[in-house]
C-alpha cells in the first residue's frame, strides 16, 4: 500500500492570537508552530496501515522553509520520505494549494491519500476534497474508522448527529476526524533516524502546476468581541446562588 499524507504546519492551539499591523493576518512572532493536529492523526493512521499491510508512507507539505520541522516530526513518527513544495514566498489559497498538491501526487502512484479534515488555522475544510477532485478520485471526510480489503476502503465517518459507513474503491482520499486514533509521540531514536531521512524539496515554479491567481483574499481580520470578566454571583448557599443566576438569565439577558 503506497500512502501519501498531506500535512500543514499551524500555530499550536494553545497560541494566543493577535492581529498583525496590516490587519489581514495574525502576528507570527512568538508562535509555536506544530503539525496540524488532524494531520498527526493522518500520519498515525498511515503508519498503522503500512505496518500492517506493507508499503511506504510519503508525507507532503507545501510551505516555507520552517515547514521542514513538521515534516521532520512526521519522519520521526515513522514516515518513510517527505516532500516539501517550497512556496517561494507565494501566498496560495486553499484551491491553489490543492491544485499544486494534486499535481505532485499525480507524479506518484498512491493507493491512499490521507489528510486532516481541516487545518486549525484557516479552518477551510477544503484542501482534502479539492485534491481528490483534481485527481478524479473519491474522498470520504471526517473518518473515525477505516479498513481496506480487495481494493476497497470502508470508512465510518461522522455526520451532523450521527455516523455513516461508506465504501469506495481505491485509490481514494480520506480525511481524519478526532477519534480515529491517538497519534504516537516521537521517540529519541525516531528523531535521530528522521535526521537521516531525505526531504525532497521542490520549488513551486518547477512543479509544472500553475496555481493560478488567488481567488480568495483575506482583506481584514479582527478579534471577535471580547467578553470582559463576568459578574460573580454571590450567595450564602448553592441554592441562593442558583436562584440569583436563574433570575439574571431570565430578567437581564432573557435567554431562558
Amino acid at each position: 500500500m503506497e500512502i501519501a499524507v498531506l500535512l500543514k504546519q499551524v500555530p499550536a492551539t494553545e497560541s494566543l492570537v493577535e492581529i498583525a499591523d496590516d490587519g489581514t493576518a495574525i502576528k507570527t512572532e512568538g508562535i509555536n508552530w506544530v503539525m496540524n493536529p488532524y494531520d498527526e492523526m493522518a500520519v498515525e493512521e498511515a503508519l498503522q496501515i503500512r505496518d500492517a499491510a506493507g508499503g511506504t508512507v510519503t508525507v507532503f507539505s507545501l510551505g516555507p522553509e520552517k515547514t521542514v520541522e513538521a515534516l521532520r516530526t512526521a519522519l520521526a513518527m515513522g514516515a518513510d520520505t517527505a516532500v516539501r513544495i517550497d512556496t517561494q514566498g507565494t501566498l496560495l489559497d486553499g484551491m491553489a494549494t490543492a491544485k499544486v498538491l494534486a499535481g505532485e501526487l499525480k507524479k506518484g502512484a498512491f493507493d491512499l491519500i490521507i489528510a486532516g479534515h481541516r487545518a486549525v488555522d484557516d479552518d477551510n475544510f477544503q484542501v482534502g476534497p479539492a485534491v481528490a477532485e483534481f485527481m478524479g478520485i473519491p474522498h470520504i471526510s471526517m473518518v473515525i474508522r477505516q479498513e481496506q480489503a480487495d481494493g476497497k476502503i470502508r470508512c465510518t465517518r461522522t455526520i451532523d448527529g450521527g455516523t455513516l459507513v461508506l465504501e469506495t474503491a481505491l485509490p481514494a482520499l480520506i480525511t481524519t476526524q478526532r477519534g480515529l486514533n491517538e497519534p504516537r509521540y516521537t521517540s529519541l531514536p525516531g528523531i535521530m533516524k528522521a535526521k537521516k531521512k531525505p526531504i525532497d524539496t521542490r520549488a513551486l515554479s518547477e512543479t509544472g502546476t500553475d496555481p493560478g491567481d488567488p481567488m480568495v483574499e483575506t482583506i481584514a481580520m479582527r478579534l471577535p468581541p471580547q467578553r470582559k470578566g463576568g459578574r460573580i454571583i454571590e450567595g450564602d448557599s448553592a441554592a441562593d446562588k442558583a436562584a440569583a443566576l436563574v433570575r439574571a438569565l431570565r430578567e437581564e439577558t432573557k435567554v431562558i
Binding site: 500555530p11 492551539t13 492570537v17 492581529i19 495574525i26 486549525v120 488555522d121 484557516d122 479552518d123 491567481d213 481567488m215 480568495v216 483574499e217 483575506t218 482583506i219 481584514a220 481580520m221 479582527r222 478579534l223 471577535p224
Partner: peptide, 13 residues
C-alpha cells in the same frame, strides 16, 4: 479562523 479566535473578511473573485 483559528477555531474562532479570529474573524476574517474574505473577498471572492
Amino acid at each position: 479562523m483559528y477555531g474562532g479566535k479570529v474573524l476574517a473578511d474574505v473577498s471572492l473573485s
